[in-house]
């Protein structure tokens, strides 16, 4: 079997413009930063992004102009601020945003992962979220109906099967067996709904390690197309038990993202100005800074 371990540049070369990409981050945790940076470096365009609670990965891609459609449940950078680029793009309608909720995005992925074409749900009823979805380009993805057994009101949601699901994990082996530690929001459903699944791992381990803790495997090897091994690949967002979020860099990011004038400066310095993630890590403080961010073994942050 060919080795699944690839560089992010190799993987991103296989992403066609116009793809639907699911991103695995949540606000400031396990965001697909290494992938977002490379998508920007390779000037991908016209992407559809989906994510339960959008975070820094989506904000970067929207800010850099790669995204034409967003399927999202909400999002922020927690106390560091809002997702300014996403919010601005919605205000100027430069992206077609389909606004859902955390659970309804998760249910759409779940249906996709189970091979169902739709799923019923009791959320969004009698809300403006639903009215706006029905009034826009998302209308084809939702229907109201009554349960044929009980007569109860339901919303039916079309399943989501992203062209590619990217999930950042703590541990994977070369075959793609992937383990996630701590909370994992909709990562499992999102990955298993993907037509292609790519994992980005902090640590590459021998399969023998996976075999010692198989109950921690969330995404099994046969579903994974490629493994990108990139330590600190989610910086400046947190990876539980590996490193904390970089509060200084997140503040710096928000200082740039909050105006459309300053945002390109961030992209030029940290993404265009670096060839790859190792150069990026050097630019944001290198080994001394990464060492400061390393997680405490007991606390996990």
């Amino acid at each position: 079997m060919a080795d699944k371990v690839k560089t992010v540049a190799e993987v991103v070369q296989t992403v066609p413009d116009g793809s639907h990409i699911a991103l695995g981050g949540f606000a400031i945790n396990r965001c697909n930063i290494v992938v977002a940076h490379e998508l920007i470096r390779q000037r991908k365009k016209n992407l559809t992004l989906s994510q339960g609670v959008v975070g820094l990965d989506t904000d970067l891609l929207v800010g850099a102009g790669l995204v034409s459609r967003l399927i999202m449940g909400g999002g922020s950078l927690d106390r560091f601020g809002p997702v300014h680029c996403v919010n601005r793009a919605r205000e100027t309608r430069s992206v077609d945003a389909h606004d859902y909720s955390s659970l309804t995005i998760c249910f759409r992925y779940l249906a996709g992962a189970l091979g169902l074409s739709f799923i019923p749900v009791k959320s969004l009823l009698s809300s403006e979220i639903l009215e706006r979805l029905e009034a826009g380009s998302a209308a084809k993805d939702i229907k109201r109906m009554k349960c044929p057994f009980t007569g109860e009101d339901y919303l039916l949601l079309r399943s989501l099967n992203p062209d590619i699901s990217f999930v950042h994990v703590q541990i994977a082996d070369r075959d793609g067996n992937s383990q996630i530690h701590g909370a994992r929001w909709e990562n499992e459903e999102q990955a298993k709904a993907g037509r292609r699944v790519i994992v980005i791992t902090e640590e590459l381990v021998p399969t023998e390690y996976i075999q010692r803790y198989p109950e921690q495997t969330i995404i099994p090897a046969h579903r994974v197309e490629a493994v990108i091994h990139q330590p600190y690949g989610a910086h400046p967002t947190a990876v539980f038990q590996c490193y904390d979020y970089d509060a200084d860099h997140l503040k710096l990011y928000v200082n740039h993202s909050k105006t459309i004038e300053r945002f390109p400066e961030y992209v030029n310095t940290y993404i265009w100005g670096t060839k790859n993630h190792w150069e990026y890590l050097d630019k944001v403080g290198g080994l001394p800074r990464m060492n400061e961010l390393r997680a405490d073994r007991i606390l996990g942050y």
């Binding site: 909400g74 999002g75 996403v86 205000e91 909720s101 955390s102 809300s127």
Partner: peptide
């Protein structure tokens, strides 16, 4: 001006 959106808010308020 857009802010955070629903996240789990709608699901919780509904159910």
């Amino acid at each position: 001006r857009y802010v955070n959106g629903s996240a789990g808010g709608n699901d919780i308020a509904s159910n």
